[in-house]
């Protein structure tokens, strides 16, 4: 167990050919992190999309400082959509708690609610688009418009991807009598983490557009 805690620097300075080291190494189980592969996979995906959004934000910051920058209005509807995501995250916390207590009936019920919230959010975003287009804020109008549409689209695609995983999650708890507890808990946890991630991304993007 102790060797798993060994720091990366320590691991990378070992001399694997030395007999003393070999004796230690022979007991190694072959894992670097004491984590489930699914969880690492999810982190990997979150890191990649964080990098992607960061790069967008960097270019946004670069463009913003020019004096021809024109701000986008923030329709009130955006606040409601944000609220929907906050509620989703809150509901997911409840789901996590429920699944921890093996209360999958409740978890399933609330998972449905998540789906409804997500669809409402997407519809809300489309309505925002519609309003803005009607008000004459086309994507090619100004750089700020361009970024707004790019950000909302990409975030929307991430949510759609999340909905695919949400379907799998619901599937795991579909029939209460067939639930494999460990799998269900695992999937629910991953799904919840992803939803919190989506909220965080949205808050950053929304805040960026709001305060620039």
């Amino acid at each position: 167990m102790s060797k798993n805690k060994e720091s990366l620097i320590n691991q990378l300075t070992q001399k694997p050919w030395e007999p003393a080291q070999a004796k230690v190494d022979n007991l190694h189980e072959g894992k670097t992190f004491n984590l489930h592969v699914g969880k690492i996979g999810l982190r990997y995906i979150m890191v990649v999309s964080t990098i992607m959004f960061c790069l967008f934000i960097v270019t946004y910051g670069d463009r913003m400082v020019y004096d021809d920058w024109v701000r986008m209005p923030e329709p009130f509807l955006l606040w409601i959509n944000t609220l929907l995501l906050v509620i989703s995250s809150f509901v997911f916390i409840r789901i996590q708690l429920a699944s921890k207590k093996n209360n999958f009936e409740k978890a399933r019920r609330e998972l449905f609610f998540i789906g409804i919230l997500a669809v409402l959010f997407l519809i809300g975003q489309l309505l925002v688009w519609q309003d803005l287009v009607q008000a004459g804020y086309y994507v090619s109008g100004s750089p700020a418009n361009g970024y707004f549409y790019v950000f909302t689209t990409l975030h929307g695609f991430h949510l759609l991807g999340g909905l695919v995983y949400w379907v799998m999650t619901i599937n795991k708890v579909w029939k209460l009598e067939n639930i494999i507890i460990r799998k269900a808990k695992h999937t629910i946890e991953l799904c919840a983490i992803y939803w919190h991630f989506l909220l965080a991304v949205w808050i950053v993007l929304f805040g960026l557009m709001l305060f620039s």
Binding site: Q11, D25, L27, H28, K31, F33
Partner: peptide, 23 residues
């Protein structure tokens, strides 16, 4: 990105017994 997901995690987490990073 999907492929890379596999390469990274397989190397990190699915090594056989005794296979340390430095081996």
């Amino acid at each position: 990105t999907m492929g890379g997901l596999n390469y990274v995690i397989t190397i990190l987490q699915a090594r056989t017994r005794g296979m340390t990073l430095m081996r």
